[in-house]
Protein backbone atom coordinates (compact mmCIF):
# COMPACT_ATOMS: atom_id res chain seq x y z
CA UNK A 1 0.00 0.00 0.00
CA UNK A 2 1.26 3.44 -0.83
CA UNK A 3 0.91 6.35 1.59
CA UNK A 4 -2.02 7.83 -0.31
CA UNK A 5 -4.07 4.66 0.10
CA UNK A 6 -3.29 4.46 3.81
CA UNK A 7 -4.31 8.08 4.29
CA UNK A 8 -7.48 7.57 2.22
CA UNK A 9 -8.50 4.61 4.38
CA UNK A 10 -7.71 6.56 7.54
CA UNK A 11 -9.63 9.71 6.59
CA UNK A 12 -12.45 7.75 4.97
CA UNK A 13 -12.91 5.56 8.05
CA UNK A 14 -12.85 8.56 10.39
CA UNK A 15 -15.38 10.47 8.32
CA UNK A 16 -17.74 7.47 8.10
CA UNK A 17 -17.49 6.68 11.82
CA UNK A 18 -18.07 10.37 12.57
CA UNK A 19 -21.10 10.43 10.28
CA UNK A 20 -22.60 7.36 11.93
CA UNK A 21 -21.89 8.89 15.34
CA UNK A 22 -23.83 12.03 14.30
CA UNK A 23 -27.02 10.05 13.87
CA UNK A 24 -26.50 7.71 16.84
CA UNK A 25 -25.63 10.02 19.75
CA UNK A 26 -28.59 11.01 21.91
CA UNK A 27 -27.25 14.40 22.84
CA UNK A 28 -27.06 17.10 20.14
CA UNK A 29 -23.72 18.42 21.45
CA UNK A 30 -22.05 15.07 20.87
CA UNK A 31 -23.66 14.85 17.44
CA UNK A 32 -22.28 18.27 16.59
CA UNK A 33 -18.80 17.25 17.74
CA UNK A 34 -18.92 14.10 15.63
CA UNK A 35 -19.94 16.19 12.67
CA UNK A 36 -16.89 18.41 13.23
CA UNK A 37 -14.70 15.29 13.20
CA UNK A 38 -16.30 14.24 9.92
CA UNK A 39 -15.69 17.66 8.39
CA UNK A 40 -12.05 17.48 9.41
CA UNK A 41 -11.58 14.07 7.89
CA UNK A 42 -13.15 15.40 4.71
CA UNK A 43 -10.76 18.32 4.70
CA UNK A 44 -8.01 15.70 4.86
CA UNK A 45 -9.53 13.92 1.86
CA UNK A 46 -9.62 17.23 -0.03
CA UNK A 47 -5.92 17.69 0.63
CA UNK A 48 -5.30 14.16 -0.66
CA UNK A 49 -7.18 15.16 -3.81
CA UNK A 50 -4.90 18.18 -4.23
CA UNK A 51 -7.67 20.67 -3.47
CA UNK A 52 -5.86 22.70 -0.82
CA UNK A 53 -8.02 25.80 -1.12
CA UNK A 54 -11.22 23.80 -0.73
CA UNK A 55 -9.75 22.00 2.29
CA UNK A 56 -8.95 25.30 4.00
CA UNK A 57 -12.36 26.72 3.08
CA UNK A 58 -13.97 23.57 4.47
CA UNK A 59 -12.32 24.09 7.85
CA UNK A 60 -12.97 27.86 7.91
CA UNK A 61 -16.60 27.72 6.78
CA UNK A 62 -17.87 24.46 8.23
CA UNK A 63 -15.75 23.83 11.31
CA UNK A 64 -15.02 27.47 12.11
CA UNK A 65 -18.37 29.12 11.47
CA UNK A 66 -21.28 26.78 10.81
CA UNK A 67 -20.64 24.32 13.61
CA UNK A 68 -19.95 27.12 16.09
CA UNK A 69 -23.44 28.40 15.26
CA UNK A 70 -24.88 24.94 15.86
CA UNK A 71 -23.14 24.66 19.24
CA UNK A 72 -24.25 28.17 20.07
CA UNK A 73 -27.91 27.35 19.40
CA UNK A 74 -27.73 24.03 21.27
CA UNK A 75 -26.24 25.79 24.29
CA UNK A 76 -28.63 28.71 24.06
CA UNK A 77 -31.72 26.50 23.98
CA UNK A 78 -30.13 24.24 26.61
CA UNK A 79 -31.49 21.17 24.89
CA UNK A 80 -29.58 18.83 27.18
CA UNK A 81 -32.34 18.59 29.74
CA UNK A 82 -34.97 18.33 27.07
CA UNK A 83 -33.77 15.52 24.88
CA UNK A 84 -36.15 14.71 22.08
CA UNK A 85 -37.46 11.20 22.50
CA UNK A 86 -37.67 9.18 19.33
CA UNK A 87 -41.39 9.22 18.67
CA UNK A 88 -40.86 6.86 15.79
CA UNK A 89 -41.69 3.18 16.28
CA UNK A 90 -38.87 0.67 16.06
CA UNK A 91 -40.54 -0.98 13.06
CA UNK A 92 -40.48 2.23 11.10
CA UNK A 93 -36.91 2.83 12.18
CA UNK A 94 -35.91 -0.63 10.91
CA UNK A 95 -37.65 0.10 7.62
CA UNK A 96 -35.79 3.40 7.32
CA UNK A 97 -32.46 1.69 7.85
CA UNK A 98 -33.23 -1.06 5.33
CA UNK A 99 -34.24 1.54 2.75
CA UNK A 100 -31.07 3.43 3.54
CA UNK A 101 -28.92 0.35 2.93
CA UNK A 102 -30.69 -0.22 -0.39
CA UNK A 103 -30.03 3.40 -1.27
CA UNK A 104 -26.37 3.01 -0.38
CA UNK A 105 -26.11 -0.12 -2.53
CA UNK A 106 -27.60 1.82 -5.41
CA UNK A 107 -25.13 4.63 -4.92
CA UNK A 108 -22.18 2.24 -4.83
CA UNK A 109 -23.43 0.50 -7.98
CA UNK A 110 -23.63 3.81 -9.79
CA UNK A 111 -20.22 4.88 -8.57
CA UNK A 112 -18.56 1.65 -9.69
CA UNK A 113 -20.37 0.79 -12.92
CA UNK A 114 -22.41 3.54 -14.42
CA UNK A 115 -19.53 5.95 -14.97
CA UNK A 116 -17.99 3.75 -17.61
CA UNK A 117 -19.34 5.48 -20.68
CA UNK A 118 -19.28 9.05 -19.43
CA UNK A 119 -16.75 11.76 -20.02
CA UNK A 120 -15.31 11.25 -16.55
CA UNK A 121 -14.27 7.68 -17.26
CA UNK A 122 -12.80 8.45 -20.66
CA UNK A 123 -10.79 11.41 -19.43
CA UNK A 124 -7.09 10.90 -19.02
CA UNK A 125 -6.41 10.33 -15.33
CA UNK A 126 -4.60 13.38 -14.01
CA UNK A 127 -1.11 13.01 -12.62
CA UNK A 128 -0.99 12.11 -8.96
CA UNK A 129 0.71 15.29 -7.86
CA UNK A 130 -1.66 17.68 -9.60
CA UNK A 131 -2.84 20.35 -7.19
CA UNK A 132 -5.35 23.03 -7.96
CA UNK A 133 -4.09 26.38 -6.83
CA UNK A 134 -6.18 29.19 -5.48
CA UNK A 135 -5.26 31.03 -8.65
CA UNK A 136 -7.04 28.46 -10.85
CA UNK A 137 -10.22 28.61 -8.79
CA UNK A 138 -10.14 32.40 -8.65
CA UNK A 139 -9.69 32.67 -12.39
CA UNK A 140 -12.69 30.42 -13.05
CA UNK A 141 -14.80 32.25 -10.46
CA UNK A 142 -14.15 35.67 -11.94
CA UNK A 143 -14.45 34.75 -15.61
CA UNK A 144 -16.67 31.83 -16.52
CA UNK A 145 -18.70 31.73 -13.31
CA UNK A 146 -18.92 35.46 -12.60
CA UNK A 147 -22.74 35.50 -12.79
CA UNK A 148 -23.28 32.60 -10.34
CA UNK A 149 -20.68 34.22 -8.12
CA UNK A 150 -22.62 37.48 -7.99
CA UNK A 151 -25.87 35.60 -7.46
CA UNK A 152 -24.31 33.88 -4.46
CA UNK A 153 -23.69 37.25 -2.90
CA UNK A 154 -27.41 38.00 -3.37
CA UNK A 155 -28.24 34.74 -1.60
CA UNK A 156 -26.04 35.74 1.31
CA UNK A 157 -27.66 39.17 1.44
CA UNK A 158 -31.12 37.60 1.40
CA UNK A 159 -30.10 35.26 4.23
CA UNK A 160 -28.76 38.18 6.22
CA UNK A 161 -31.96 40.16 5.86
CA UNK A 162 -34.09 37.07 6.46
CA UNK A 163 -32.41 36.31 9.76
CA UNK A 164 -32.72 39.90 10.93
CA UNK A 165 -36.44 39.92 10.05
CA UNK A 166 -37.01 36.62 11.91
CA UNK A 167 -35.33 37.89 15.05
CA UNK A 168 -36.79 41.40 14.92
CA UNK A 169 -40.39 40.25 14.70
CA UNK A 170 -39.78 38.06 17.70
CA UNK A 171 -38.70 41.01 19.80
CA UNK A 172 -41.65 43.23 18.86
CA UNK A 173 -44.10 40.57 19.96
CA UNK A 174 -42.39 40.23 23.29
CA UNK A 175 -42.55 43.91 24.15
Amino acid sequence: MNPEQILFILFGAVSLIGAIAVISFRHPIYSALSLIVTFFAQAGLFVLLGAHFVAAAQVIVYAGAIMVLFLFVIMLLNLGTLSVKGAMGSKLKGLAIILGILFAAEGIYIAVNALNDTAVASAEPAAASVTTTTYDIGELLFSKYILPFEVTSLILLAALIGVIVLVKRERQEES
Binding site: A56, V59, I60, G64, A65, V68, L71, T133, T134
Partner: peptide, 19 residues
Protein backbone atom coordinates in the same frame (compact mmCIF):
# COMPACT_ATOMS: atom_id res chain seq x y z
CA UNK B 1 0.76 27.57 -0.59
CA UNK B 2 -2.37 28.42 1.40
CA UNK B 3 -0.44 29.45 4.52
CA UNK B 4 -2.61 32.38 5.54
CA UNK B 5 -5.83 30.42 5.03
CA UNK B 6 -4.38 27.69 7.24
CA UNK B 7 -3.82 30.23 9.99
CA UNK B 8 -7.37 31.57 9.70
CA UNK B 9 -8.75 28.03 9.71
CA UNK B 10 -6.83 26.93 12.78
CA UNK B 11 -7.44 30.08 14.82
CA UNK B 12 -11.16 29.69 14.20
CA UNK B 13 -10.98 26.33 15.99
CA UNK B 14 -9.78 27.84 19.26
CA UNK B 15 -13.36 28.79 20.10
CA UNK B 16 -14.33 25.13 20.56
CA UNK B 17 -12.12 24.67 23.60
CA UNK B 18 -13.75 27.67 25.25
CA UNK B 19 -17.32 26.76 24.31
Amino acid sequence: NIGILYILAITSLGVYGVV
